[in-house]
Design a binder for these strands. Structure first.
Lengths: 200, 200, 200, 200
DNA sequence: TATGAATGAGACTTCATTCAT
DNA sequence: CATGAATGAAGTCTCATTCAT
């Protein structure tokens, strides 16, 4: 039932170590984004961070742990952004809310903070990673409820799940060579209309 | 510029062979769905089809080709469905159109015809597989234009891209243990509102 | 001690069969020449002869047997040519003798009768194939002795071995893009000088 | 036009690694000599060096690279020997020159430095490996020209090609169970007569 | 006989992970 | 802590050979 207990990433003790870890995480983001979880190799991550493979394993004792660390970094960022939106939700127009959600994803991408693709990578890890997904849907549901306090909680949750799927697609859209900007506007519109209808 | 040699899947010429190929494709769908392209192994595909590894390679000379074959099967199905929708589009309500699109995906899943996930697996193959994506967006744009002939063609294309992303999420939603039905309804609503607004 | 008894190539019974075998042998020569024994595949040989793999195995029950058959065809040709040279040897100038030897090889190549490379392919088969080599050196020694009856038989044998090595190189030289003709002349000269000195 | 990426052999950086590489190369020479390029297996090379297959690939990322490394080792040796002969050529008798050439090959064999057979193994790699062949013929031509400065350069080149073929046969002759020594003498004689005639 | 499918051992290669220095 | 070497299970793919139709 319980996952074998995933040994967590080790915390570096010195300044030197902290830089190392940062470089490793940055490299990992790049590689995971370019190749995906399976095709990414630990060797390449280390190389791109100009570290040795031994060094990488010093801090991240397995590929799984590395991915998990990435996700946590992502979760921290996203959580802040979502909490902020929750707070402002009552005063936001549907338009602004939609924009807020979409923009959050664009920010993430721009800051290379993580490969969202990991969110539902493989099934085993899903258990662990699932936490983040649940957290996000809960937060989005909060936002919806903040705008329309009368809404059925169950429905808010369902809507959140659907909205999350659209958000997941944002990086793809932002990648599009042709008219990425317009595509983002369209995505926003879609979310806006959906939210608008449901919360008024 | 040109990919070396896109050696295609070999066509079986005997009844025995045709059965084999069918079994192999079915097994492949399962395995690819469960594990994703990278983590799926040819050995497992063969085993699940009760065939030897050699038999698998007799008809699908590489993992790439196998994935491609799956996609083609999927494309054939989806094409029919989309063409049908294009024809009926002028007479459909936004509601029915949204339902048609979502349902198409649900059908696909039910018939295990393919893992849509392959549509944009890794970047290299993207070139080949991209064809299908372009085809689908073009078709969806046609549907939109059929309902609203005055719409700007460029906008229709953009909208189609966004709608496609939502459609891609449908299998995920349909998988959800809790209230899959409701989630599908929500997805439909989202698409309906979006289409409605833009085409009236 | 004894090789497991190499099942020989089956003799075709009808005209149709004889054509088949001829086509297969021709195809085999091509493929063996292009790729070498190891890299050549039975499948390709069959394909190039426009026959099925089953058909190929009908006549040549193994790759070894096929190679052996090729060698035999070659041996027959070479034997005739060498016997002819033996007969004429007493009346030939060193020049003509050298030319005769070199030309024999060029003929073989032109008529695509065989890949001489097989002569000392792998060690196991060497035993079987060795026969041909011994036969050839004996014949060449005969030629030398015919010109210089006083020569020590042992020396003639040694010389023959060396000459054979030069002959083996002829196809390579004849392949050379630049000035193949001149290279052949040089090879002839080399042999002539060697023979001349030893037999006068 | 350009070969994709000629990933070279990795240089070991620790003493342990250097020993390994040496052992691997030695094992490779043996196996390639015994079986030839195609029939030699990486597994056997690793085993004979008492290393794991992973270790072998750590330093030689492909069978091609391993063969190339062998050739380079051989080329280094042969180059030294040939340059030495070039320098001494003006003062050497044809006899000594012939002996020098033949002896060089015998040395190579004795020191197990490489399987010359690789020089023109398969056609693809020929491009890379061809370099060595051209280098050798050029050097041999230099030797000839050093003895006979008036000779036509083109002819020297042709002669060099032919002489090289004889040299290639030396290891075969030296292998002969019966009277290897006499065979080498004969080969030397052949070369001597050829050189003598052309350079006086 | 002819044909195409079936089989599986075995080849090359990759990569996460462990260790000795 | 850092580094580079070591390991071997596992994956993709090939091909000689055998068989059923």
């Amino acid at each position: 039932m319980s996952t074998p207990l995933p040994i967590p990433a080790r915390q570096p003790q010195r300044a030197r170590g902290r830089e190392r870890v940062a470089a490793l995480l940055d490299a990992a983001v790049q590689v995971f984004e370019e190749k995906g979880f399976d095709a990414a190799t630990m060797t390449e991550v280390a190389a791109r961070a100009q570290a040795s493979i031994g060094s990488l394993y010093q801090f991240f004792p397995s590929k799984e742990v590395l991915a998990q660390a990435l996700l946590e970094r992502y979760a921290a960022f996203i959580n802040t952004a979502l909490n902020d939106l929750v707070a402002r939700a009552p005063y936001l127009s549907a338009q602004d809310m939609a924009h807020g959600l979409v923009d959050m994803q664009v920010q993430v991408r721009a800051s290379r903070s993580v490969a969202l693709s990991l969110v539902d990578a493989r099934r085993d890890a899903a258990e662990v990673r699932g936490g983040i997904r649940d957290q996000m849907t809960a937060r989005i549901a909060d936002i919806l409820l903040a705008r329309a306090p009368d809404m059925d909680a169950a429905r808010a949750k369902n809507m959140a799940v659907v909205v999350l799927q659209v958000l997941k697609a944002i990086p793809h859209l932002a990648d599009e060579a042709q008219g990425a900007a317009q595509l983002l506007v369209e995505a926003e519109t879609m979310i806006r209309l959906y939210v608008e209808k449901a919360t008024t």
